[in-house]
Design a protein around this nucleic acid. Structure first.
Lengths: 334, 334
DNA sequence: AACGTTTTTGTTAACGTTAACGATAACGAG
DNA sequence: CTCGTTATCGTTAACGTTAACAAAAACGTT
């Protein structure tokens, strides 16, 4: 940096200011930038962190049950991070596996991470939230269903979403509708079921216990749940699964049993993940705008960081983004 | 750190040594660790980086076309990284999108990254390799098919894998076998086709041009390719797709056309990704041990880093791990 | 022209660690 | 017991940046 400063005939501080977009006379700015380019100079990230007490590193906690869908979260998060000059560090952490404290300690080397993004299901994992709170790490959650008063978050309205999808199925003439719950330890699983139940109630349709099965959001659990519902021997004309993995398991099960979708059985999912369009027939589902959600979580996180370090305020901001219902071939009768 | 040193009655240097597993008398070690625990002390990552010229950060370049499969790479990489005290930074970079230089510059703040892991398809993206070489960033590639002399890498033997799978199909009695190529700009796509072709040759079976279609490794391209092959009107009893996404597209297309799998059409894929077991019927495929490959890439990368900083040697090491053939319901006739 | 304001730039002192080298203590062999 | 060797520990000086404050320059007002 000294070389740059000398070449431009200014002080170190001025160079630093130019490189950090601080207030500098435009003429000076240009002079400095010219030197920077000529010498192909870059700030040293470590020195910068040490001096400024910021790492420009965001954390992203990843649980394997997020599986392939991590990519959809990553798109939004990475884009915002890059736009804002941050880099993204992935930390793996398994829901239920309890070395949470040591994980949090591991990234606690004082200014290692400026903040953390928590996608599902970790956004609802209380021990992790506790550890982060204790360590004073700032975080924003994406799509939590539990402990909503605990931190800033972005989400969709899961209740309204399942409510609306259920009404859509009812409007299509379905009366006997099966439902596959997600992992009931997760808040969204409960919320989604409530939306289904209340929509059925509203239209005075019974929620038959034999047509409601518990899954865990995984494909395998979806197959079991579907077998259970179909095995009950009661008539069902549609099954609404709490996520796309389980919905695709319903379709797979139907194929295996020779049941035609959607003619004999309509199937609806939730999330609009990649798999929704990678199976036949393509899945009718609730679309969560995951990219927007996760991108917005970065914006929020930065606000939280600013509020914390500038004003020493623990900001709590909640944002609900719009979902939509995507109708594809698994429910429409062509 | 000063507090820890005073409490333990030693110098700063000794504390540093204890925390870095340097040679220290065992009694001193214990004394220091006691203080560390009592004061709940952690090393400051930034200061450590600044002083030691190491960031303990590995980069992982991510291209969207990796899509959901990033999770399978992540598992191996993250585990090794954590074991070795490293953290993982995800950088997004799109194959073909050409701001490669600015991306590499962005992480070039001298010691920002100790090294980089390159999964497909970026492991074959020459402009990126050029930029990394120019910037002096050390990297290891996972599963490259091109420019094999250019750096260290870990991979499987794609040629042998398709060769063996093809022989397996032939042994099951198939004679008219269709093949869907991957994106021909990628080395593995070519290699995999060669394995298929040579196996057919060996058994004196013709490789009918009408039964070979070009895809791009995506589900959509697989559907098109499959339509093309089936539309040719020639008899086909099996289709071997260059990856699982395209193989599942073949199955979806078969469903749509009312062709029974595997009775009327056997289908084989490549990779053994999650989707292989998330569809009906489950996919016969070549299993790449992605976790092992990616985990091993971290080991290699650390060797490369060591060799470079200690001996100033550009290490080139190649490792081939074993693949296997997983037979599931898309080829067996029950 | 003198003075308050604001804008722009410079100086100094950390930030918390480790490299490099030096000093001391412990040990073994002759 | 002496001396060389090795194991252990301490001192000093960076590492490259920015915060905080100070100074100077530019500007507008009366």
């Amino acid at each position: 940096m000294k070389d740059v400063a000398e070449r431009a005939g200014v002080s170190l501080m001025t160079v630093s200011r130019v490189l950090n977009n601080d207030r500098v006379a435009i003429a000076t700015h240009d002079k400095v930038m010219e030197s920077v380019r000529a010498l192909n100079y870059r700030l040293d990230a470590s020195a910068r962190s040490l001096s400024s007490a910021q790492s420009y590193l965001m954390g992203f906690f990843y649980d394997n049950s997020l599986g392939g869908y991590i990519s959809q979260y990553l798109i939004g998060v990475l884009q915002r991070c890059n736009e804002l000059g941050y880099h993204l560090v992935i930390e793996s952490c398994s829901y239920g596996e309890s070395d949470v404290d040591s994980i949090v300690e591991g990234l606690t080397g004082r200014y290692m991470l400026d903040g953390v993004i928590l996608p599902p299901p970790l956004c609802e994992y209380a021990p992790l939230l506790d550890a982060l709170d204790k360590a004073g790490v700032r975080y924003v959650r994406v799509g939590p269903g539990l402990e909503l008063e605990r931190s800033s978050y972005v989400s969709i309205d899961d209740y309204r979403a399942t409510f609306e999808m259920t009404e859509r199925l009812i409007a299509q003439g379905h009366r006997a509708i099966g439902f596959i719950k997600g992992d009931i330890h997760q808040g969204v699983a409960v919320t989604r079921f409530e939306g289904f139940r209340d929509a059925m109630d509203k239209h005075e349709l019974p929620v038959d216990a034999a047509l409601v099965a518990e899954g865990s959001f995984s494909f395998a659990s979806g197959m079991e749940a579907c077998e259970q519902i179909l095995g009950a021997g009661k008539p069902v004309s549609a099954i609404f699964a709490s996520n796309d993995d389980m919905a695709s398991a319903v379709i797979a099960t139907a194929h295996r049993r020779g049941i035609r979708v959607p003619e004999e059985l309509a199937v609806a999912g939730f999330d609009d993940t990649n798999i929704a369009t990678s199976i036949y027939p393509q899945l009718t589902t609730v679309r969560q705008p995951i990219e927007e959600l996760s991108g917005q979580s970065v914006n929020l996180l930065i606000e939280v960081i600013r509020a914390d370090s500038l004003l020493d305020i623990k900001l709590q901001k909640k944002e609900i983004l719009a979902h939509s219902i995507i109708e594809r071939d698994s429910t429409l009768i062509s």
